[in-house]
Nucleic acid binder design. Structure first.
Length: 203
DNA sequence: TTCAGGATGTACT
DNA sequence: GTACATCCTGAAC
């Protein structure tokens, strides 16, 4: 089965972040499917990572989801107006997740364009098309992701990951996909953790 | 093209 | 009250 379940996420978070590149993020809406190919991810590991919301075992209403079972969707509101999508990794009780920072639209572009810009895909300017899902907040807006999805298991929800989508002619991730590694974005406050090379993106 | 500043709600001091 | 895993706008170049 192509759909990724908890077993895929029950492992080292950095490894999972790398392995999500090239997989598909599928959003089921009332209007139909929207599908993104994942192109940029970041790892957050509560046990050792000052940039993680649950660093040092911090438990609040918001961070509760980070301790849930692997494959659980973690969505939070940032800067009062944007959402960020994560998927929980490692064993239940270990606070860790992969942030989905970016992707490229491969199916349902009209539906995504309507959510992001309020117009059909054909009406997008070339610039709008380029920045379609470049950035976690933009991706969430295009895919209609908000906190109503927080805490749901990705294996059985209207938002899930898949290794290829045969019914849409999208192939599984191939071995040896080239990717780059670097510092994570927007966490300069996190002291030594700001330099962890835990961001990954397709070349 | 780059850059400063503002929007805006929640978490935490 | 302050900071935040961000993005958009408008001004200056």
């Amino acid at each position: 089965m192509a759909r990724l379940d908890g077993g895929f996420f029950l492992r080292d978070t950095v490894e999972a972040a790398r392995d999500l590149l090239g997989r598909y993020l599928v959003r089921e809406t009332e209007e139909g499917l929207i599908v993104c190919r994942v192109t940029e991810t970041e790892a957050y590991v509560g046990a050792v990572d000052k940039a993680c919301h649950a660093y040092g075992g911090r438990m609040t209403e918001r961070t509760r989801t980070l301790y849930a079972a692997p494959g659980t969707i973690y969505v939070y509101l940032i800067y009062g107006m944007y959402h960020c999508l994560n998927v929980v990794t490692e064993a239940e009780g270990a606070a860790a997740a992969v942030l989905i920072r970016g992707g490229e639209i491969v199916y349902g572009e009209d539906r995504a364009a309507a959510r992001r810009f309020g117009v059909p895909a054909a009406a997008l300017t070339p610039a709008q098309r380029r920045i379609f899902s470049d950035g976690p907040g933009k991706l969430c807006k295009a895919l209609g992701i908000d906190r109503s999805l927080n805490g749901l298991p990705a294996a059985s929800s209207p938002l899930y990951f898949s290794d290829g989508l045969p019914e849409l002619g999208l192939p599984p991730r191939r071995e040896g996909l080239p990717f780059r590694t670097g510092r994570r974005i927007g966490i300069d406050y996190a002291q030594e953790a700001a330099d962890f090379p835990w961001r990954f993106w397709l070349a």
